[in-house]
Design a protein around this nucleic acid. Structure first.
Length: 209
DNA sequence: GTTCGGATTATCT
DNA sequence: GATAATCCGAACC
């Protein structure tokens, strides 16, 4: 029985989860369990901060100027991992749908729940708040790099996202704010994070003017 | 082939 | 909060 429950908890979210509007998926990803199994061991955490990147209508999105070798995965099937490099670091996204729209959710921060010693070793940091706060820090902590670009998130072998019955995030607990680091479309609030979480990167409050 | 800038972070003050 | 470090992809020639 316990085994069955664990099986259900760890099973990856299905393709249909990702095959929806990118903003819906982004908000729905908050509170879900992010899982990464590597040769060194398991690292997991609760997703607390994300950003949505649309397609042709979003000048801040990589897919805004059409298909290139770099952003090819964004144009493909939803539910795949899109990894890109920036400033000599990596960031990881989940490709969303529907209708093959080139949209994706950037996962900016998780609250570590499993494999913390492994994360501390990879990051060369002991402070738990410095392990997975920020997209590039997260990638380093869970060992995701460019080689994993395009991996299917619905298989559940190396990397996946699952339901999390212990951390249900209500709509009222979600704060929307402008995306961090983007120079275009600054006025659009497509960054979402769990209100009150200490594991969120950047400003945790944002006042609408 | 060269230039340019970015969905960042660490390390200062 | 400001700045340097750092490297890859895209755009242009």
């Amino acid at each position: 029985m316990a085994c069955q429950m664990q099986q259900k908890m760890y099973s990856p979210l299905p393709r249909s989860f990702y095959d929806r509007d990118v903003v819906v998926v982004a908000r729905d990803l908050l509170g879900k369990k992010f899982c990464r199994r590597s040769r060194q061991g398991m690292t997991c955490g609760t997703i607390v901060e994300v950003e949505a990147y649309r397609g042709a209508d979003d000048p801040a999105s990589h897919s805004f100027r059409g298909k290139t070798p770099r952003n090819l995965v964004m144009f493909g099937e939803p539910g795949h991992l899109y990894v890109y490099s920036i400033h000599a670091k990596f960031c990881l996204n989940a490709v969303t749908g529907p209708q093959r729209t080139p949209s994706a959710v950037l996962i900016r921060a998780i609250e570590p729940t499993q494999g913390i010693p492994l994360m501390q070793r990879r990051r060369d940091r002991t402070n738990v708040f410095d392990l997975t706060r920020g997209p590039a820090r997260l990638c380093e902590a869970v060992e995701v790099s460019g080689e994993m670009n395009g991996v299917d998130l619905t298989i559940g072998s190396r990397i996946w996202i699952s339901r999390n019955s212990y951390a249900h995030v209500k709509s009222a607990d979600i704060v929307a704010a402008p995306r961090i680091g983007v120079t275009k479309a600054r006025d659009v609030c497509l960054r979402f994070f769990v209100d009150g979480s200490r594991f969120v990167s950047g400003p945790r409050r944002w006042h609408r003017r």
